[in-house]
Computed example of a mutant assay.
Amino acid sequence: MTASAEHDLVVEARPPAWSRPVVIGAAIIAVLLLGAALGMFLTQRALSGDDQAVPAAGSIDVGFAQDMSTHHTQAVTMANWERDHTTDPELKQLAFDIESTQLEQIGRMKGWLMLWSQPEQSTGAPMAWMAGPTGHGGMNMGGSPAAAGNGLMPGMATDAELAKLRSLSGKELDVYFLQLMLRHHQGGTDMAQYAHDHAAQPAVRTLAQSMLISQGAEMDQMKLMLAARGAQPLP
């Protein structure tokens, strides 16, 4: 075989440039569908086994599924950007792990909301489902959700911070991603803890506990990764 023929075979075997985003997009859809199917299955089993009422709008179960889905969506966005733009294998793996885990959890929560005939996003104030006289979780002493002054849920990045993340490269990108994602995980802890302690649905409490465990381990990992790069968490 001539060198020219060998070259032609290599070119033909190489996947087209457009195939990578198509494959990634298909994988994301598959993870969301898997999570939704799992969420619907577990919820149906819980409802039939415990004969519980379907959660209503404004309940802890519905509010948690709506707000945590929104919170997770931003984490997936940041992780997707880091995975595609970092040159550090350790950061690439962390970003992939966060993206895949939280995509599956989003799918599960959206599956619940579909079964409960509730919208995917709340029309009220963020974390209003945590308001009450007990002062738990993400509430301040006045009994109202302790959302950030910019109206975002705790830990979420602003538009300016996301723009800065997209403007960086190399070590600066990696450090800023770790700082934003660590704060993001920390901000979602109160929601997960409150749902774990007060949600009516066993499936919701189980998922909240899973989030606390997995994100707790990731927070420890991110702190070590920041220290190894001579950086500190955001104040």
Rank of each mutant, 00 (worst) to 15 (best):
R183K: 07
R183V: 01
H184T: 00
H184M: 02
H185M: 00
H185K: 03
Q186G: 01
G187A: 02
G187E: 01
G187N: 06
G187W: 04
G188F: 03
G188V: 02
T189V: 15
D190K: 03
D190W: 02
M191F: 06
M191G: 09
M191S: 05
M191A: 12
A192N: 07
A192Q: 06
A192C: 10
Q193Y: 06
Q193G: 04
Q193C: 01
Y194H: 11
Y194E: 04
Y194R: 00
A195L: 06
A195P: 02
A195V: 03
A195K: 03
H196P: 05
H196L: 14
H196Y: 14
D197P: 07
D197C: 00
H198E: 12
H198Q: 13
A199L: 12
A199Y: 11
A199T: 10
A199G: 11
A199R: 07
A200P: 07
A200N: 09
A200V: 15
Q201W: 08
Q201T: 09
Q201N: 14
Q201M: 15
P202E: 13
P202S: 12
P202I: 10
P202H: 15
A203P: 00
A203R: 03
V204I: 12
V204G: 03
T206L: 14
T206P: 02
L207D: 13
L207C: 10
L207H: 07
A208G: 10
A208P: 03
Q209W: 14
Q209F: 13
Q209L: 15
S210I: 00
M211S: 07
M211C: 06
L212C: 14
S214I: 06
S214K: 09
Q215C: 05
Q215A: 00
Q215F: 05
A217K: 12
A217T: 11
A217E: 14
E218A: 07
E218F: 01
E218T: 03
M219N: 04
M219P: 04
M219T: 00
M219Y: 01
M219H: 01
D220K: 09
D220T: 15
Q221A: 15
Q221S: 13
Q221I: 10
Q221N: 13
M222A: 05
M222V: 10
M222W: 05
K223H: 12
K223M: 15
K223W: 04
L224V: 12
L224K: 15
L224T: 12
L224F: 00
M225S: 08
L226T: 03
